[in-house]
Design a protein around this nucleic acid. Structure first.
Lengths: 241, 241
DNA sequence: TCAAAAGTGTTCCGAATACACCCATGC
DNA sequence: GCATGGGTGTATTCGGAACACTTTTGA
């Protein structure tokens, strides 16, 4: 830290020790998708307070650590996943949100293909599990509030940015994509219209591969064309669903 | 504060003194509308660091104060305005954002009718002034970044919620409303279509009053019907422009 | 041959757009 | 009368919703 010796910081002109008493943490809402349902990754706490309660993964921010780095570290520690896109959605700072001290927490969310790794239980967590966002256990602290705000943000973002693709395997069929969006948004699409709309966007790359071992006509596989999307975005195109 | 005596907080199991060193502040982006331009309220700092630079209004959060209360207090202290809707838009926590210490700041914005009061210069600010968002001075700290993020959030919100009405006097003509939205969004509307769209929403209350002293046919005055909007919103209506 | 999903084409309707036109007022 | 903005009506276009239909595979 720089100059913590100064008793006053002149721009506010108040005694530093009285005001520099905030703890700062990040909490991460990690979304996945399994069995047609949107899931969220929770851990069971092995320490007081809220021992044995389920909670979002999170940690205190180090004095020399940026917020987004803290969020990425939390995710990596639990899942081993690196360089995942994480989006800050809200800061929670109620006086009473933490039973022991004044801790302000910043909520981040990210969206991962939940089949690509196994969560790792750590020193502060007994176990980690995926929960459907429709069947949540009781949560520690104000994590229920944070989670709901995260879900709200996800549902909004998913309609305006191609965030949803991260939830699927790299190669997917159009029906898989449709079912994902139906789970995310809570309503049905017409098959024909959904296909038309998404294909006209020109952000899906058709592959010369097909689903295998299915008891019906095998569907063509597609993958999200990130490069093409970036180009279109610069030209003013905006994803809407 | 509660239990600051405890050297360890058990849920994270780390020494408290090493981690509870964050300062927390709020910074407010106050939008107004004058002469067909979107304006933002800035103050000129009378103290180091960044003495004489222009800055957003903001302050440290008190140990026993909620974030949104802190934001409201800042606004009230400078303008005398109470109970104004303020929306949190982002938390800024880069290690180097403050030259003296680690201060995390939470950005809020609000939107006011800028003619209804006079800003008050305070002990820490020489003067307060409205600046067009297209002609900004150099700003203190990372306030330029915060302001840009605030503008981005405003431009988004304004399309999906009837936020814009707060920028106008209570009673306004449809053309005034149209010009405001053109300034906010950066493009023109067709007069007839704009009227049709906004009137069909049924959220404007027509008054039996007209503009006076104008060198053309006097325009009918309207006011935003907050109650009616709330009712419609509950029924699932959503404002879109 | 049947079930199940893949994949296509077409009609219909409403909303957005473009544009033309008349109205009221002050100077 | 004419400049200025107020205010209305309508034809056209475009995209979305609804839905019917054909195709391909495994069992």
């Amino acid at each position: 830290m720089k100059s913590t010796n100064a008793y006053y910081i002149s721009d506010y002109n108040i005694p530093i020790r009285e005001y520099f008493i905030f703890g700062l943490s990040v909490d991460c809402v990690i979304f996945g998708y399994q069995e047609g349902e949107i899931k969220v990754l929770l851990v069971q706490r092995s320490l007081e307070p809220f021992k044995d309660h389920w909670a979002l993964i999170g940690d205190l921010v180090e004095p020399e650590q940026n917020l987004c780095d803290a969020a990425n570290n939390v995710l990596e520690k639990l899942t081993g996943l690196k360089n995942i896109y994480m989006k800050q959605f809200f800061a929670f700072g109620s006086i009473d949100r933490h039973p022991l001290d004044r801790v302000v927490t910043v909520g981040y969310f990210s969206v991962v293909n939940s089949l690509s790794y196994n969560p790792i239980a750590s020193s502060w967590a007994k176990s980690a599990e995926w929960f459907s966002i429709n069947e949540l256990p009781e949560l520690a602290f104000d994590h229920y509030t944070i989670l709901q705000k995260g879900i709200e943000t996800l549902k909004h973002e998913v309609r305006h940015k191609p965030t949803g693709f991260e939830l699927l395997p790299t190669k997917f069929t159009l029906l898989e994509l449709q079912l994902l969006y139906e789970a995310l948004l809570g309503y049905k699409f017409d098959k024909s219209n959904f296909r038309k709309k998404i294909l006209e966007m020109n952000i899906l790359q058709p592959l010369n591969e097909f689903k295998e071992n299915v008891a019906h006509r095998p569907a063509k596989l597609f993958q999200f064309d990130e490069k093409r999307y970036k180009v279109l975005e610069e030209k003013g195109f905006s994803f809407e669903l």
